[in-house]
């Protein structure tokens, strides 16, 4: 917790400063609303806000999970078969360069309005860091260790589960951390075009010039991002403590 102290102090100081300046009439609440105004807005729109928050949070977690499963599985397949890797990986890099906001309308045409489009949009954005990091981890295993497993006649599957995956663990996790933020971005981009959630709330608030509601939604998104990081940290703690990679 000590590491978050400087950030907490800074955020608290800025929040108090805006609040005081607003009370003194020296702050334009239409530019950045004070915390009290945002808090009041959330209370007034409780039902709509929390329903949107829950939708976005649920889809973000689902997308991150799906990205992990797909990205991790693809990386394993790529590491086992160089031909498949050389065929598909350049395409993955190519699609990574296409902005999601340009792809999202296409996803609506293919998949229609609803959560399927939002999840597809989030997976599209967040799969690449997991895939690329896992692949780097699997490909950079110490050559001597691989030979050691060869000398002791370990099968390819044993080498994968007991050496390659645990040896790439830090890479996989770094990819997951990056993807957790991207999943939220992908969900919001999907919600802009497919409707629902905090993305849609931001979009409608924008048209009504409700800056306070936009900020409330932004805080909601930040909370979702933090919850995802917290969950990942808990999983990381459990994995390093119980070490499920014992041979």
């Amino acid at each position: 917790m000590k590491q978050f102290l400087p950030t907490s102090i800074l955020v608290t100081a800025i929040t108090i400063a805006i609040e005081v300046l607003n009370k003194m009439g020296m702050w334009d609440p239409q530019l950045i609303p004070p915390a009290s105004v945002i808090f009041d807005t959330i209370q007034e729109n409780q039902e709509a806000f929390f329903s949107a928050f829950w939708d976005t949070a649920r889809l973000s977690f689902q997308s991150l999970f799906l990205s992990f499963i797909l990205g991790f599985t693809l990386a394993i397949i790529f590491s086992l078969n160089d031909w498949i890797k050389r065929a598909i990986f350049p395409l993955a890099i190519f699609f990574q360069t296409v902005p999601i906001i340009a792809i999202a309308p296409l996803l609506v045409i293919y998949l229609g309005y609803g959560p399927q489009t939002i999840i597809a949009s989030a997976v599209f954005v967040s799969i690449f860091p997991i895939l690329a990091s896992t692949l780097v981890g699997l490909d950079t295993i110490n050559k001597n260790l691989l030979e050691l497993f060869q000398v002791y006649q370990r099968s390819r599957l044993q080498t994968l589960f007991y050496l390659k995956i645990p040896g790439s663990y830090h890479y996989i996790f770094a990819g997951l951390r990056i993807s957790s933020g991207l999943a939220v971005i992908g969900v919001v981009a999907g919600e802009f075009v497919a409707g629902g959630g905090l993305g849609s709330l931001i979009d409608t608030s924008r048209t009504q010039q409700r800056i306070d509601l936009v900020f409330a939604a932004l805080i909601g998104l930040a909370v979702i991002g933090l919850l995802q990081i917290m969950l990942l940290n808990i999983i990381n703690l459990l994995i390093t403590r119980y070490r499920p990679f014992k041979l």
């Binding site: 110490n142 001597n144 260790l145 030979e147 050691l148 497993f149 000398v151 002791y152 050496l163 645990p166 040896g167 663990y169 070490r243 990679f245 014992k246 041979l247």
Partner: peptide, 20 residues
């Protein structure tokens, strides 16, 4: 086989490394 580097798996204990 013994390599120039000890080549131990950092996530395993001494006993588990030897068990390999």
């Amino acid at each position: 086989f013994v390599f120039q580097e000890s080549c131990l798996l950092p996530w395993l204990t001494v006993s588990e490394n030897v068990g390999i």
